[in-house]
Design a protein around this nucleic acid. Structure first.
Length: 449
RNA sequence: GCCCCCAUCGUUCAGCGGCCUAGGACGCCUGCCUUUCACGCAGGUAACACGGGUUCAAAUCCCGUUGGGGGUGCCA
């Protein structure tokens, strides 16, 4: 059996990390089994779908390196869904209903579903009429979930749900069941938030004449610090935003993979080819996983440091602002081992490429209130004035002053020149600045003491 | 309310009846390297929610309790 899996986003928002992971797991499985990965846009709800988001979702997937073999759009297939449902009505598997939503709500107890009011009323097509599925009143619908084991629902508890809206547009259950059947999808891998809709889809599939089920694997949710499902409104979840902030797709992909799954040999950071090789749906966890940006940062830092220098420069330069390429090339190796994502580049190099940043008050107090700081700066100023302007010479002078006075001289000088007490190596970038600029900064700092 | 589900260090993955005095990774702490920070290296901290069973033996199986989550739409 050739594996066929699909990722089916609704274009109602940008691709978020939860969706990205679902896509990734599907893709991984397809690649592991030499199967087919389908991208299916579930845009049956015209009111909510935004066509421009389809492209955004495609771009995010491409960015992640998740490529698909086939692509479909449900809005192109409305006719088929409607036709199937018409067949249901003819066969008595479904019926029309003209109950208003308010009417149903008024009739039915709090929390209960539709009461089957129109089951045998033989309602004809017309304004405000929907088609509902005639759900079996007895029996159970269930499946063997690859991650959760056997899951069963009592049919009596499933209401007669809507198949076609009063607008004539089919609901996603119909499209979903039909497409999985029509596209010969073998495995359905998706978020756990969809478990409850699975019996409906299964019932529909059966009604469509299928005598089999796809194999389901319901992924545990990705949650925030409060252990709640990630929400687009509340949480930082857009994949596109991570790209913008300078995360590497390989790192994101690798990190996402460790949420709900992990290689048995405990080696988490590794090439995608190996991960594909090792991956199996059956090994996925059941418990929800917290999206830990700290760990993502670590992964990203590792991936950044794995880059060869040329690639690093090429990728990080757009984040650096307006910098002379030669100067940036000089700084890049030091930058590379200090950042976790590219948008941290500017703060590291600002003192070299632009006007001196305002000193950080806390750092200033910590460094500049030490003994002999005035003496250090005085001597450094005096000796730098006539000095040879190279990194070696600057280092020799500054450190020499420290030795003489038996204090650490680098810190006050660093503070004066960079405004920070930590950062890039001091002397090489300092030699790139004009002597006059360095002197100005040193004197200004001395004046503030 | 009703339905479904989950439960190992702060986080994440490993563990699928004996190899566990529970392992890896992130975080945190310490030391080394370095007249900054970071990288790197070496250590350390820290968990089987609770209660009953089953078994010669349970983190691993069963039941319950507690805690947490998801769903409950003419959204997907």
């Amino acid at each position: 059996m050739t594996v066929r899996v699909r990722f089916s986003p609704a274009p109602t928002g940008y691709l978020h990390v939860g969706g990205a992971r679902a896509a990734l797991f599907n893709w991984l499985y397809a690649r592991n089994r030499g199967g087919t990965f389908i991208l299916r846009i579930e845009d049956t709800d015209a009111d909510r779908s935004r066509p421009e988001l389809i492209e955004a979702i495609r771009e995010s997937l491409q960015w992640l390196g998740v490529d698909w073999d086939e692509e479909y759009r449900q809005s192109d297939r409305f006719d088929r869904y409607v036709e199937v449902v018409e067949g249901f009505v003819d066969a008595g598997l479904a019926y029309r209903c003209d109950c208003s939503q308010d009417g149903v709500k008024a009739r039915v107890a709090e929390g209960a579903g539709y009461d089957g009011h129109c089951r045998d009323r033989n309602v004809q097509p017309g304004e405000g009429v929907v088609v509902r599925f005639r759900t079996p009143e007895t029996g159970v619908t269930g499946w063997d979930d690859l991650v959760r084991g056997r899951v069963e629902f009592d049919n009596a508890l499933i209401e007669d749900f809507v198949l076609i809206r009063s607008s004539g547009v089919p609901m996603f259950h119909v499209a979903n069941a039909y497409d999985d059947l029509d596209m010969r999808v073998t495995h359905v891998v998706r978020g756990e938030d969809l478990v409850n809709t699975t019996p409906r889809v299964l019932l529909l599939r059966q009604a469509m004449g299928a005598d089999d089920q796809p194999i389901y694997a319901h992924l545990p949710l990705i949650v925030n610090e409060q252990r709640k499902k990630l929400s687009k409104r509340r949480d930082d979840v857009s994949v596109g935003d991570y790209a913008t902030r300078g995360y590497l797709p390989e790192a994101m992909r690798n990190y996402l993979l460790t949420l709900g799954w992990g290689p048995k040999d405990d080696v988490e950071i590794r090439p995608i080819e190996e991960l594909i090789e090792l991956f199996d749906l059956a090994d996925i966890n059941k418990a929800p996983a917290f999206f830990d940006i700290k760990k993502l940062d670590h992964f990203n830092g590792e991936y950044i440091r794995m880059l060869d220098l040329e690639t690093f420069i090429e990728q990080s330069r757009p984040f650096a602002g307006d910098v002379d390429p030669a100067l940036y090339a000089l700084l890049a190796p030091w930058v590379q081992e200090r950042i976790k994502h590219y948008d941290e580049v500017p703060q590291l190099i600002e003192w070299v490429v632009g006007p001196p940043p305002e000193p950080i008050e806390k750092d200033w107090r910590k460094v500049m209130t030490k003994d002999r700081v005035r003496d250090v700066l005085d001597l450094v100023i005096e000796r730098l004035e006539p000095a040879e302007w190279t990194a070696e010479s600057l280092a020799a002078i500054v450190l020499g002053v420290g030795d003489e006075l038996e204090v650490k001289s680098q810190l006050p000088v660093r503070m004066a020149v960079t405004g920070r007490r930590s950062g890039l190596p001091l002397f090489e970038p300092m030699a790139e600045l004009d002597r006059s600029e360095v002197m100005r900064r040193l004197k200004e700092a001395r004046g503030r003491l």
